[in-house]
C-alpha cells in the first residue's frame, strides 16, 4: 500500500460559517492503481487531495505515505518528502511563463539540488517521453493547452515520484485531447511501482480508471466505489 488515510476530518471557518469539507474519510491506495476521486463541486475532492498529498493539514486523522505518517513531519521535512515522493499536475498547470518548457520540467530536479546539466538532460528525456522534444525551448505560452498539460506531466514525473497526483487534468482541454492525455498517463506513466490519483468530474475519462470513488458532502459515498481492471 502506498497511501493510507484514516479518519480524515477537515473544516473551514468558525462558528456560524463553520463548514465541514471532510468528515471521517478513510482511503487506501495501492501501487499500480489509477484511482479517480469524482464527485460534484464542493464535495471535498480537492481538500482530500491536498491532505493526502501533504499540503493541507487535517483537523483529525492520519495519512501514511510509504510508511511515513506525513503529518507528523515538520514543514521543511514535509516539503522534502513531497519533493521526493509526490508529483503534482495542477489544474492550471502553473508553469512559469518566463521559463522554457525544458526549464519548467527541470524544476523538481533543481529543487533536489541536482547539477544543472543533469537537470536539463533528464528534463529533455522526459519531454521526449511526452512527445515534446522539439518544443523544449519554447515558453509555455507558445504551446497549446494539451502541450502545456504534457509539460506539466513531464514536470510531475521527472523526479520519478511514487505517487502522482493530477487535479482536474482535463478541465482546460477539449474532450479528445483530454482523453489522449489521460490515456498517455495510464499507458506510459502508471506502473507497478507508482500510484496515480486523479481528481476529476469529467466522465469522458472515467474509462481509464482502475478504481473510482465518489464523494459527496465531505464523505466517500458508500457502495459507489467502482473497481476496474488494472
Amino acid at each position: 500500500m502506498i497511501l493510507t488515510a484514516t479518519g480524515i476530518t477537515k473544516h473551514f471557518g468558525e462558528a456560524q460559517s463553520l463548514t465541514y469539507a471532510l468528515r471521517d474519510v478513510s482511503l487506501s491506495v495501492d501501487f499500480g492503481e489509477m484511482l479517480y476521486i469524482v464527485g460534484p463541486s464542493g464535495s471535498g475532492k480537492t481538500t482530500l487531495l491536498s491532505i493526502i498529498s501533504g499540503i493541507l493539514r487535517p483537523d483529525a486523522g492520519r495519512v501514511v505515505v510509504k510508511d511515513r505518517d506525513i503529518w507528523s513531519l515538520d514543514a521543511d521535512s514535509l516539503a522534502g518528502f513531497r519533493l521526493q515522493t509526490i508529483g503534482f499536475v495542477f489544474q492550471d498547470y502553473h508553469l512559469f511563463p518566463r521559463l522554457t518548457a525544458l526549464e519548467n520540467v527541470a524544476i523538481p530536479l533543481i529543487l533536489r539540488r541536482e547539477p544543472w546539466g543533469k537537470c536539463l538532460a533528464d528534463a529533455g528525456k522526459m519531454l521526449q517521453i511526452v512527445g515534446l522534444a522539439q518544443k523544449q525551448t519554447l515558453a509555455p505560452v507558445k504551446l497549446s493547452g494539451g502541450e502545456q498539460q504534457r509539460v506539466a506531466i513531464a514536470r510531475a514525473i521527472v523526479a520519478e515520484p511514487d505517487l502522482l497526483i493530477l487535479d482536474e487534468p482535463t478541465a482546460s482541454l477539449d474532450g479528445e485531447t483530454g482523453r489522449k492525455i489521460v490515456a498517455f498517463v495510464k499507458e506510459n506513466i502508471l506502473n507497478e511501482h507508482r500510484a496515480i490519483i486523479i481528481v476529476t468530474h469529467d466522465s469522458r475519462i472515467y474509462e481509464y480508471a482502475t478504481r473510482m470513488i465518489r464523494m459527496e458532502d465531505g464523505r466517500i459515498v458508500p457502495g459507489q466505489e467502482a473497481v476496474y481492471e488494472k
Binding site: 521543511d76 522534502g80 519533493l83 503534482f88 502553473h94 508553469l95 524544476i107 523538481p108
Partner: peptide
C-alpha cells in the same frame, strides 16, 4: 507559480 513551487516541495 511560487505557490506551485511550494506545493512541489520548495522550502
Amino acid at each position: 507559480h511560487f505557490g506551485a513551487l511550494k506545493a512541489i516541495g520548495a522550502k
